[in-house]
């Protein structure tokens, strides 16, 4: 995973709440067996509407998504994270993320930063007044800033550390292989096994 420290880019406002993972990537795209190449699948059904925010010329090349509350609800499909990243997003800002989506984002290197809904609304105004305005998301300082606007964001300490270092979870866990083996010795014999 690539490390994430600070990112500056333009943003798209998404005026929706409860953006579920079936909207982020519909099931028909989940048949693919690769980890990349999902850019066409992102918000596939909303993108059929020429007025959808990501279709508008002023929001081409965005890398930050500013969404209404409850982003990423529903299915555990990590394809939702891959589709956002393949499309070019590095950051999603929202007042509330669904748990599994948030966990998946942390694994894949997509930053999900929590800021209050009032700050989301301010950002919507700023971005809509000038879609080309660059927004900076600083993971080291946990701050979002653009022009005069600045606010702190929340991110899990452990996820932040892993993102900053670009660490792979499996590698970290495998350092504990001995304790895992030790634990396995004491598992009760009544537990099911397919062996």
């Amino acid at each position: 995973m690539d490390a994430f420290t600070i990112h500056t880019g333009t943003a798209a406002p998404l005026h929706r709440s409860n953006v579920d993972t079936d909207q982020i990537i519909p099931a028909e795209y989940l048949k693919r067996i690769t980890r990349h190449g999902f850019e066409d699948a992102l918000f596939a059904s909303w993108r059929k509407d020429p007025d959808f925010v990501l279709n508008r010329p002023e929001y081409q090349g965005v890398s930050i998504l500013v969404s209404g509350p409850d982003f990423g609800t529903g299915s555990s499909r990590e394809h939702a994270v891959w589709a956002l990243q393949d499309f070019g997003f590095r950051v999603v800002l929202c007042s509330r993320f669904a748990d599994i989506f948030r966990g998946n984002s942390g694994k894949g290197g997509l930053l999900t930063a929590v800021i209050p809904q009032s700050a989301i609304e301010e950002l919507w105004e700023i971005v809509e007044a000038d879609p080309s305005i660059p927004i900076t998301v600083d993971l080291q300082e946990r701050k979002v800033h653009v022009g005069e606007f600045m606010c702190d964001f929340e991110v899990d300490d452990y996820v932040r550390w892993r993102l900053l270092e670009g660490l792979d979870d499996i590698g970290i866990t495998l350092e504990h292989s001995d304790v895992i083996s030790e634990f396995e010795k004491n598992r009760p014999s009544f537990l099911p096994s397919l062996g």
Partner: peptide, 20 residues
Amino acid sequence: FGIGTSEVEHVMATQSLPLK
């Protein structure tokens, strides 16, 4: 509980998961 594909790989490799 449900997990994403990175966690699926994690469980395959380690039979464990780091969780809060």
